[in-house]
Computed example of a mutant assay.
Amino acid sequence: RQTHTALRAHLHLICTQFLEAENIPVLAWPAYSPDMSPIEHVWDALDRRIRQSVPVAANIQQFRTAIEEEWTNILQATIKNLINSMRRRCVALREANGGHTRY
């Protein structure tokens, strides 16, 4: 069974390749604040869905298919809430001088 770190690395690679293939620009984000990025929270939701899926993916193609299926099941309300929280996140980050925030 893959570790959480390995799974996140696979998700990151697949998502990055997709964004590049679709010519979707992404914002640079401070390495010390990845939790401030809404996509990190979406990836966490995706990670939880993948971990609960049955059967467990036995190869990279099944894993990719599972990711694509679970991605479509993430509620738009979840994504909208994360987007709407950006102002609060940025204010909190600024007030913490780039340090730890509750997000």
Results as ranks from 00 to 15, higher is better:
I67D: 00
E68A: 03
A28H: 13
T5E: 12
R64H: 09
R89G: 03
L93Y: 15
E40A: 11
H41W: 13
D47Y: 12
T78N: 06
A58F: 03
C15P: 00
V91F: 08
C90S: 09
W71S: 06
R88N: 10
N97R: 10
A9F: 07
W71L: 12
D44H: 15
I24W: 04
Y103D: 04
T78P: 00
I39W: 08
E68F: 01
A21C: 04
T5A: 12
I67L: 07
L82V: 02
D47T: 13
A77T: 13
T78K: 09
V54D: 10
T72G: 00
I24P: 00
I83W: 11
A28I: 09
E95L: 15
L46M: 05
E20I: 13
I67N: 01
A77S: 13
E68Q: 03
G99H: 01
R64N: 06
T72M: 09
H100G: 08
N81M: 08
R48L: 13
N59I: 01
N81R: 12
Q52V: 09
T72D: 07
L7N: 04
A45E: 15
Y103T: 04
E20P: 00
L13K: 08
M86H: 04
N97C: 11
T65C: 00
T65L: 00
G98C: 03
Q52P: 00
W71G: 00
E70M: 02
A21Q: 08
D44K: 15
T101D: 02
E70A: 03
T3W: 00
R94D: 07
T5R: 10
P25Y: 09
R1V: 08
S85I: 07
M36Y: 13
N73V: 03
W29E: 06
E20S: 10
P38L: 09
L93V: 07
T78D: 12
C90G: 05
V26R: 13
